[in-house]
Simulated assay, not measured.
Amino acid sequence: MEPQPPAPETLPTPTVPSAEAPSKPFKLHRRFDRTGRLLGDPAMERLSKARVVVFGLGGVGSYAAEGIVRSGVGHLTLVDFDTVCVTNANRQLHATVKTVGKPKAELMAQRCKEINPDADVRPLREFYRDELADQLLAPGSYDYVVDAIDNVKAKLHLLHRCVSLGIPVVSSMGAAGRLDPTAIRVEDLCETHMDPFAKDIRKLLKRKYGVNTDRPTGITAVYSIETRRQPLSLRYDADDGFSCVCPNDNDFHTCERRTQIDGSVAFVTSVFGMNAAGVVVRRLSVGR
């Protein structure tokens, strides 16, 4: 019998400890020996107590979550409303022939628990949106946010909320349509160049939420300076054009509602995700 993924939680508001309960002295587990020898015991203890949330568990977010849990972060919340589609298999960690149709948040939580059974990992099968913002991202609930959302409306609201609440956030810009992982950069959103998606995010954050994106925003962006490639038609598109094969429809973000379906590859989306994980781990390890 296959192990069952943990049951998803239903929108609890994350609790913020009012006082630290007495605990045993920190002792690094051997599974983190190599990371510990790079960062040291004090940094590993900080990571073990850190609380991180990842919004979006696709080709970028799944790798970000894995990089974070493999680095010793002790508390991780994984938010994604979607289920695995066969077209995810080329770039998403949880996508295999056995997982098609299963919830991404639950699958990724199970994977993270198999990496570190001592970690507190919570899957939330939800789509981030305005009316759930207070529950999914309560003030003081997390030390860092990873934004791997590809829905523009949701992304804008999430980034504005992080800025408003003063929660550190690292945000993935456009990973699709790229083939060169060496062209990926990490800068404040105001410093992003040659990425049309990042340009739109800057413009819309300023127009819709009044965020001054001409100066440092506090939003760390992972982006690519490679020119975005247009998607190619495939032979099976010949009769009817693109046809969505996702196992479950939803009211939030579907293939059928997109203006175009871009190509993407694992050796680019994974590097986006691991760069995001690197930002989180490096900054939390020094107490920032």
Rank of each mutant, 00 (worst) to 15 (best):
160 H>S: 09
147 D>F: 00
186 V>E: 09
153 K>Q: 15
150 D>G: 14
174 G>K: 03
157 H>N: 10
146 V>C: 13
186 V>D: 05
150 D>A: 14
189 L>I: 09
153 K>V: 14
175 A>I: 02
178 R>E: 11
175 A>N: 04
166 G>E: 02
186 V>P: 04
177 G>D: 04
155 K>L: 09
159 L>W: 07
158 L>R: 00
161 R>C: 03
163 V>D: 01
168 P>T: 04
174 G>S: 10
151 N>T: 14
162 C>S: 07
179 L>T: 13
169 V>A: 03
140 G>N: 10
199 K>S: 14
151 N>E: 15
180 D>I: 07
186 V>N: 06
141 S>C: 04
144 Y>H: 12
145 V>M: 04
170 V>R: 03
158 L>C: 09
199 K>T: 15
158 L>P: 06
175 A>R: 00
181 P>W: 06
184 I>H: 09
158 L>Q: 02
175 A>H: 04
165 L>T: 02
141 S>E: 04
165 L>V: 00
192 T>M: 12
152 V>W: 15
188 D>P: 13
164 S>I: 02
197 F>P: 02
188 D>K: 12
172 S>P: 03
159 L>Q: 12
190 C>S: 15
186 V>K: 05
145 V>I: 13
145 V>R: 02
164 S>T: 10
193 H>M: 14
198 A>V: 09
189 L>E: 08
148 A>R: 08
187 E>Y: 09
161 R>G: 02
141 S>L: 04
183 A>Q: 10
176 A>E: 03
152 V>Y: 15
182 T>G: 00
163 V>L: 08
163 V>M: 08
180 D>P: 09
174 G>L: 06
174 G>H: 01
177 G>C: 05
189 L>S: 10
153 K>A: 15
144 Y>R: 06
183 A>E: 05
192 T>D: 08
